[in-house]
Simulated assay, not measured.
Amino acid sequence: MLVEIHKAQLADLEQLQQICVDAYSQNFAHHWHKGGLDWYLDQQFSPGQLRQAIESAETDYYLIFKDKLPVGFCKLGYSKLTEPHELWLELEKIYMLPTEKGSGIGKTVLDMVIQIAEEMGKKELLLYVIDTNQAAIRFYERNGFSLLKKTRMDLPYFKEELKGAWQMMKRL
């Protein structure tokens, strides 16, 4: 199994949009009320939104490939973290196709994100995870993350019983 991860460029826009929509939809379509999934996909993964994110100094998207085929993506965010949190890097999104869960690819991606954070001089890695996603929480805990605080997501159309979230952090 050959895993490759590369930072998305404008030339990757179409491929990035496709894997973002596929990976997110296949994992979380059932979390939304009618019309909500389409709304969210447009808000997060439309060509215009992805173009803006790729061109921005505040975010980086990475495409994840297994044996030359796209199987996931991750997004790093830099803009939300201001004093006293300038030493944090936020892992905003990391989604894999369901067929790749448990394959070790997520760990490979997380290791890359940690390396990027360390190279940037960051001291902590921050992320949010839905509190009902116990598999993801266990994955992050196994990889050194701990609960920082409990919070709630404020997303229209998202099912109320799934809005609980954990803010998790790993010291580097």
Score class of each variant (00 low, 15 high):
2 L>P: 00
2 L>N: 15
2 L>S: 15
5 I>Y: 08
6 H>Y: 15
7 K>W: 06
8 A>Q: 08
8 A>S: 13
10 L>H: 07
11 A>I: 10
14 E>C: 05
15 Q>I: 11
18 Q>C: 01
20 C>Q: 04
21 V>E: 08
21 V>C: 11
25 S>C: 02
26 Q>C: 07
26 Q>S: 10
27 N>V: 12
32 W>D: 03
37 L>I: 07
37 L>F: 02
39 W>Y: 15
39 W>E: 08
40 Y>K: 11
47 P>V: 11
51 R>G: 03
51 R>H: 10
52 Q>S: 15
53 A>E: 14
54 I>S: 06
56 S>N: 05
61 Y>A: 01
62 Y>A: 00
63 L>M: 05
67 D>P: 00
67 D>C: 00
70 P>F: 01
72 G>Q: 01
73 F>K: 03
73 F>I: 04
77 G>L: 02
79 S>C: 06
80 K>L: 05
82 T>L: 06
83 E>W: 06
83 E>L: 08
85 H>P: 04
85 H>S: 05
88 W>R: 14
93 K>R: 14
95 Y>Q: 04
101 K>W: 14
108 T>K: 13
111 D>R: 14
119 E>M: 13
120 M>R: 15
124 E>R: 15
125 L>W: 11
126 L>G: 00
127 L>A: 11
128 Y>G: 13
131 D>G: 05
131 D>L: 10
132 T>A: 07
135 A>Q: 15
135 A>K: 15
136 A>T: 08
138 R>I: 11
139 F>C: 11
141 E>W: 00
144 G>K: 09
146 S>W: 10
152 R>G: 08
152 R>Y: 12
154 D>Y: 01
158 F>H: 14
158 F>D: 09
159 K>A: 06
159 K>D: 01
162 L>Q: 08
162 L>H: 10
162 L>T: 03
164 G>T: 06
164 G>H: 10
165 A>K: 05
166 W>I: 04
167 Q>N: 08
168 M>P: 05
169 M>L: 14
170 K>A: 05
171 R>W: 13
172 L>D: 06
